[in-house]
Amino acid sequence: MEIYEIILKNYNYWIFIILMFTGLYGVIAKNNIIKKLIGMNIFQTSIILFYVSLSAKLDGTIPIITETDKHKPDTLIDAANYMNPLPHVLMLTAIVVSVATIGVALALAIKVYRTYETLEEDEIRRKIASGYTGEN
């Protein structure tokens, strides 16, 4: 197999893996809570890309029944002409839920900032250790 053929058949997975670990690194190693949230969002985006790239089919069109197929009986419709609709559905809801979870996460970050007046994790830990309870 030619080298470019290998690359063409697998590079979507490489992109998703690299994005996924970029996000995971952000969640694990960064000190700032907002940077952690950005990492989490990159992670979610990589999973969405993974699902959507799994649903792709060569020469397949978007999962909307075409005019010519509309009046055919179900046995004559060739499912290989349409991209896999199931990952699209899952990711459609996942995108909206990820926005909602980001909203809750930002609300928690605001709450943390109100109490400890910082978003740096080591400073928060130091303040907790020294018995700081905040003003709010």
Partner: peptide, 19 residues
Amino acid sequence: DWGDKDSPASSHLSPYFAK
């Protein structure tokens, strides 16, 4: 492979939906 028509994800349940 990318764009594989017979990948496991698109060969069991999803053809039912299209049909």
